[in-house]
Design a protein around this nucleic acid. Structure first.
Length: 572
RNA sequence: CGGGGCGUAGCGCAGUUUGGUAGCGCGCACGGUUCGGGUCCGUGAGGUCGGAAGUUCAAAUCUUCUCGCCCCGACCA
């Protein structure tokens, strides 16, 4: 492709509403344009990247025995009413009415529709298992679209759905998909982790997320340095230590005055005690009931874990007024001693021998406090894992990362097939529900996630496997020998199946180099009169920051050398 | 949905406090100049100041309403 004929509108300044690196760079480099909140157009090179990712995915899905289908985006309400999600999906669903006033919506995901296909077409155990997938535009009226392509209202998603005879079969399908996903993510050239996900809402079935590791992801995850254990911070389990034996010679608890010292930090300085000896006491509202949760001063409460311990569905910090009313003290002075309601403490609190906590009296704290001796509570794992915690699998050290959820696989069980009547007859003529699995990849989100992970100050650095073009030729000048050399190189490379972008614009070299860096094609070839004097052209990987380190190669060797280099980058 | 902020030329912004003929940079067009990391000089085109109503001799500027967008949070099968 000749740049002069292509539409690649690079700009020096991105719109001010772009904040994240991927949004800024994809806009500046001419990949995407914003149409509305969470709605984007893909320009030619943006679409090429999207297609490349899609091809990797479809290739691996087909290889894993799945078959592609095309489902409607516009859906009559009936199907989601059958599953109950017409109501439960809430405002996140884009709803509309047709001219007759009938209820419709745009598909946010397609379990119901694929389930309908299965129940119509699959009748016998002989027909199973099956795996059907789609790569399509989906719609969610997000409460807050954000970060450019990372959280959109319209987005491209690959969803695969498996149908099996029984749980064992579903698990097998799940494993097949897990392997396929690993190959897909390996091929995209991303640094990622497969993490155990919160399987709370759907019941405790098998589930994993594929998280792309970046500086700025929405999710916090921990990963073990030694083994491949990784999990979301809110659900990662803390390894239970030995039950501590606390010294029995700690003096009786005593109230001390701590005027206006509300935070752990303030009180810690004031009393000269480590935050780790504090009992951080938080009043939460769990399905309406006020409960006190206590974690060690240097730890953080996990609302997800606490909700599970309490067996409630809704949980959040209690409103300030309720805290004052129930504890009898201002915010910052609550504590478990004498608290009227239920108290849940994190297991680590049991290890605090000589603790400090709020006295439930404004401007006062208690010292020499011990759980169990001074107050009654149930103990459980209710805190977030932190950096340096022990890996629950192997005992190694855990490290904190930020991640962008790019893939999610899980076993659904018979939740949808029961509701939708997706059944088959087994050998004994018994009607059984198909056991389903669901496997998603955010294709358009992956475009942005890749840029989040692969960029520098000057622009994008695409992995070879998903770059819009594999080689960028910067043609410097219009001299006949330059034009001729470029044309020859173009021909040879394209004959070898290489995708080439040739910057033949009448622009100064500086402009071409800046744009090349911004666009981020992995290999750049510079053809100019200067090096051509000795029959040479320059070859520089985008990842090499110093232009002086460009490699001078003979024009005659160039095609072969470049093909080799492209192939090498495809493998790594 | 709670909190904060922003809507002025294609993009980035100034002008709003204190009402008085709408400006700068980039980009774009034309002429010249330059030519290996966003050349330099000149000329020019381009704006219902998000929208509606009001106050006023006069509104980008003041008042009321409204729409849109961004950020933090809540939410995210």
């Amino acid at each position: 492709m000749r740049y002069s004929r292509a539409l690649i509108p690079t700009v020096k300044e991105a719109p001010s509403d772009a904040v994240t690196a991927s949004h800024i760079l994809l806009t500046r480099a001419g990949y995407v344009r914003r149409i509305g909140a969470g709605i984007y157009s893909f320009l030619p090179i943006g679409f090429r990247v999207l297609k490349k990712i899609e091809q990797i995915i479809t290739g691996e899905m087909d290889r894993a025995g799945a078959q592609q289908v095309l489902l409607p985006a516009l859906l009559p309400a009936d199907y989601f009413k059958e599953s109950g999600r017409w109501d439960s999906f809430g405002d996140t669903m884009m709803r509309l009415k047709d001219r007759k006033g009938g209820d419709y919506h745009l598909g946010p995901t397609h379990e119901e529709i694929i389930c309908d296909m299965a129940r119509r077409e699959i009748k016998s155990y002989r027909d199973l298992p099956k795996n059907l997938y789609q790569v399509q535009t989906k719609y969610r009226d997000e409460a807050r679209p954000r970060a450019g392509l990372l959280r959109c209202r319209e987005f491209t998603m690959k969803d695969a759905y498996s149908f099996d005879l029984n749980d064992a079969g579903a698990l097998e399908s799940y494993e097949t998909m897990r392997a396929a996903y690993t190959r897909i993510f390996d091929r995209t050239g991303l640094t990622y982790r497969m993490v155990n996900a919160d399987s709370g809402a759907m019941g405790g079935s098998q589930s994993a997320e594929f998280q792309v590791l970046t500086q700025s992801g929405e999710d916090q995850i921990v990963a073990c340095e030694k083994c491949d254990y990784a999990a979301n911070v809110e659900v990662a389990s803390v390894r239970a230590g030995e039950p501590p034996t606390l010294p029995s010679d700690i003096p009786a608890r005593k109230q001390v005055s701590t005027p206006k010292k509300k935070t752990i930090e303030d009180v810690s300085k004031f009393l000269d005690k480590e935050p780790a000896s504090f009992l951080k006491s938080l009043v939460v509202r769990a399905d309406g009931e006020l409960v006190m949760a206590v974690v060690r001063g240097d730890h953080e409460l996990s609302e997800t874990k606490l909700a599970r311990v309490l067996g409630v569905s809704e949980i959040g910090l209690a409103e300030p007024g309720a805290v004052v009313k129930t504890t009898g003290a201002k915010l910052g002075f609550s504590g478990p001693v004498g608290f009227s309601g239920k108290v849940v403490i994190d297991s680590a609190v049991l290890g605090i021998a000589d603790g400090v906590c709020g006295a439930n009296v404004t401007d006062a704290h208690l010292v020499h406090v011990q759980a169990e001796r001074d107050f009654e509570a149930t103990s459980a794992d209710i805190r977030n894992v932190t950096e340096g915690d022990v890996c629950p699998e192997c005992g190694g050290q855990l490290k904190l990362y930020r991640g962008i959820e790019a893939g999610h696989i899980f076993v659904l069980g018979t939740h949808y097939s029961d509701k939708m009547g997706a059944t088959y007859l087994d050998k004994e003529q018994v009607k059984r529900s198909m056991v389903m699995g669901c496997y998603g990849i955010g294709v358009s989100r992956l475009v942005a996630a890749t840029v989040e992970q692969h960029h520098d100050d000057n622009g994008i650095l695409w992995p070879m496997s998903i770059a819009p073009y594999q080689v960028h030729i910067a043609q410097l000048g219009e001299e006949p020998q330059v034009v001729e050399a470029v044309a020859k190189l173009e021909q040879d490379l394209e004959d070898a199946g290489i995708e080439v972008l040739i910057d033949d614009r009448k622009e100064r070299p500086g402009v071409k180099f800046k744009d090349a860096d911004l666009i981020g094609i992995p290999l750049r070839v510079t053809v100019g009169a200067r090096s051509l004097k000795t029959g040479q052209v320059e070859l520089k990987p985008r990842a090499e920051p110093n232009p002086k380190n460009a490699e001078l190669i003979q024009l005659s060797d160039a095609p072969q050398l470049i093909v080799e280099r492209v192939q090498k980058l495809l493998k790594s």
